[in-house]
């Protein structure tokens, strides 16, 4: 017996299980990052001298990373649209670009972190750097998770396109929602940590 509405939409809610599930998961993620943002504001308003981000951080690198993530978000949604148009080659192209851009994000982040360490800027240096490493670190973990899922769907998981294309498309859509959320978090992290 199969669980109903795994791919097909339930008539009265208009949703399938996977999509509702991922949105609920994202709701909890909002609260997770919300807790950290709340901590950031609480710590910042609690002291008299909070350093400007540009004192420690490299705005150029972060801007480049922002462009990477935004582009990867577009390619992600385009890969889903390609599947909807039945164009599997284009899907591979777009999803592959997403993967590359995501890895590029990690490479730049690596250089950013190591340059901080080379100046002896550690999480323990002050609370600005502490919250910077915590928030971006948690975000990086989310990026790595996204990379794992996209890589799976692009290589071993792609066989499903032959056997059950609808379910495969739904998986890409759900992964896309998660990936856009990771992008969304960065869109707020970037100005909050680097610019303001």
């Amino acid at each position: 017996m199969e669980i109903p509405y795994g791919v097909k939409e339930r008539p009265d809610t208009g949703l399938n299980n996977a999509k509702l599930g991922i949105w609920l998961f994202l709701a909890s993620e909002v609260m997770l990052f919300g807790g950290l943002f709340s901590a950031y504001i609480f710590l910042r308003t609690g002291v008299d001298d909070w350093p400007m981000g540009s004192k420690y951080l490299d705005v150029k690198m972060a801007t480049l990373n922002t462009l990477f993530l935004i582009t990867s978000s577009v390619t992600m949604v385009m890969s889903w649209a390609s599947l909807k148009l039945n164009d599997f080659k284009k899907f591979k192209l777009y999803a592959g670009s997403t993967l590359l851009l995501a890895c590029g994000f990690l490479v730049i982040k690596y250089f950013e972190y190591s340059s901080k360490f080379s100046y002896s800027y550690y999480p323990s240096t002050d609370n600005f750097l502490g919250i910077y490493f915590t928030m971006t670190g948690l975000h990086v973990i989310h990026v790595i998770g996204g990379i794992a899922v996209i890589a799976f769907l692009l290589f071993p998981g792609a066989k499903m396109w032959e056997t059950d294309p609808e379910r495969f498309t739904s998986r890409i859509e759900v992964t896309g929602l998660y990936w856009h959320f990771v992008d969304l978090v960065w869109i707020f992290l970037f100005p909050v940590l680097y610019l303001l």
Binding site: S73, M76, H180, F181, D183, L184, I187, F188
Partner: peptide, 10 residues
């Protein structure tokens, strides 16, 4: 920016 991503990409 966030609203754009949420409204259109998502």
């Amino acid at each position: 920016k966030g609203s754009l991503v949420a409204c259109y990409f998502m």
